[in-house]
Design a protein around this nucleic acid. Sequence first.
DNA 1: TAACCATACCCAAACGTTTGGGACAATCGT
DNA 2: ACGATTGTCCCAAACGTTTGGGTATGGTTA
Lengths: 342, 342
Amino acid sequence: MPGRYKSSSVTLKTIAQAAGLDVSTVSRVLSGSPDEVSRAASPATAAAVRDWAQRLGYQPNPHAKSLRTARSNLIGVLVPRLSDMVLATIYEGVEDAGARNGLATFVMNTYDRPAEQRARIDLALSRHVDGLILGDAHRDAVVLDEVAARGVPFVLVSRYASKYPSVTCDDYLGGRLVAEHFLDLGHVKVGVVAGEPFASTGVDRSSGFVDTYRKAGIEVLTVNSAFDARGGHEAAEYLIKQAPNLTAIFAVNDFAAIGVLGAVRDAGLRPGRDVAVAGYNDTQLAAELPLPLTSVRSPLHTMGTRALELLVSVLRGQNPSSERLAPELVIRESTLPLVRNS
Amino acid sequence: MPGRYKSSSVTLKTIAQAAGLDVSTVSRVLSGSPDEVSRAASPATAAAVRDWAQRLGYQPNPHAKSLRTARSNLIGVLVPRLSDMVLATIYEGVEDAGARNGLATFVMNTYDRPAEQRARIDLALSRHVDGLILGDAHRDAVVLDEVAARGVPFVLVSRYASKYPSVTCDDYLGGRLVAEHFLDLGHVKVGVVAGEPFASTGVDRSSGFVDTYRKAGIEVLTVNSAFDARGGHEAAEYLIKQAPNLTAIFAVNDFAAIGVLGAVRDAGLRPGRDVAVAGYNDTQLAAELPLPLTSVRSPLHTMGTRALELLVSVLRGQNPSSERLAPELVIRESTLPLVRNS
DNA sequence: TAACCATACCCAAACGTTTGGGACAATCGT
DNA sequence: ACGATTGTCCCAAACGTTTGGGTATGGTTA
């Protein structure tokens, strides 16, 4: 009685009886290949079957289908943290594309902890997923190697690692774009809030930046950080203490950048005037901050959809190559042209 | 071949053969009630079965189980938008509690559009969910009434509507807390950025605020808005144009509040000095903003976990009553004591 | 007209569980 | 010493699909 609702107790058998046919015929008509359906029933019967299915509101039972076919049409997605808007947006893309491809998806947090990653992967496998999308890959790829060894199909998104198929933003280029912008503005004493060292995103963004500056003959101060506001705040405090004459800071993440803005202000400096600040991802907030934030726009939603499509082709047995999507620099008031002050 | 990995081809039959028993016995031992297992096998055999299961790494096949029992242990969750950090955090709570209760959950966006809500609910039902958690309820409850009519078990979270079971924050109280704070500070010319009129959250927060002011004999300017930064920006622009002598604005959402901060600054006023600003939800960002934001903390994660637990009790056939969790005002620099300026 | 071939179907097994109802012993009460 | 009870287990059906075989029916072909 509790929770018993007759959502759809119309099965193949219901239709078969209504149409005076065998369930196998109905099955083939309803879900066979066009070739198979023509061998299974005459055009007229096929139409009749479809008509009954329509009228009765037939919904195939996914559990029966999965049991029989050993395919679940289910995809597990792992992210460091869903309340990170960046990952949530990527997942929105995954979910979208999944719905379009008839694949159900579900998402789990791993907090970038290998133990959680393993546990969540096991959980996903126990639900018999057809494949995984991992948004929490670490550069060392040890968990990934384990998964690969088990023969589980998967793709990476947002971060890459080893030579596993992935969909990422060209983070190195993104870092370079910011560096070139800073160089244009004449900043010579600059710092980078580089994010976590285990994530390819932070590493590539900062090394793209650092390399560009190095080519210009300028060394850059770098410090790792968490990817959130607090992390950015602490990292910027450190940078400013190390080099009080800093005129620009690149944070590899918008949230970190917001923390940087706070730290700059706390140090008695004017963000955007005394210290230019740039972020990454161009989240909704960047444009709406009291001090609009210069940021590198990365195609988050698209990364999600492409990742799912990449996984689909992996599931088809193909061997697709990784994709690297283009970033775009969006310049706002947090990086005003440098004026010689006082 | 493609995507064929032997995750766990060990079934009840495997164990039964290994132990020289019947699958039914193994089944009862492994997943029967303590009472049932004792009637099914001797303590010794039971131990042996468990031992084999352990050693062979038995994982029950969820599809077979669901097919047989007509229960999927699957919960569908609807939210307006997952990339809204507030909803993402609530969902994290749901997912957490789901994992603890052996329930799989999946989440979908509806963008607060009834057509999407209906479509996503149908999708969830086609996946044979045991129940739904709706984080996108509208006050008119028309979609909810439809779902209820179909006999689908569900609970609401974040927003309430009609008399359906829900887990919410006491938003009215939250609004009152902000109003009392503003009154303490001596603000008499104030405005509210009230959010969407179809969401109980925005409505209750603003009416808690407005009622409190009204009791003090003061009328408040109110304007609806989207729940994001842009929405807050536009709403605040409107408020400031209507009443240039405004000294405080309450936005029913942190993101909207950030937009308000921007609009205040654009109007040539100093946020926190000339115009106090308060938000709602106390997201990570509030504390880390360049101008730390006064905000009402709501227990988002807890709301999610409680919602799932509420649904569990609904599924058990109980008739649990709604829960309203307590908010807490967190005062920061965006609402400094009023100083008579100039 | 016999052999043949499509055409349009149906039969039955299988996927891995759960679950109501036995079956067969050993043990018990009297 | 006998029927009744209990303890321990097995049998078989069912959930809703898919899929590798059939098997009639009718029409061609030689």
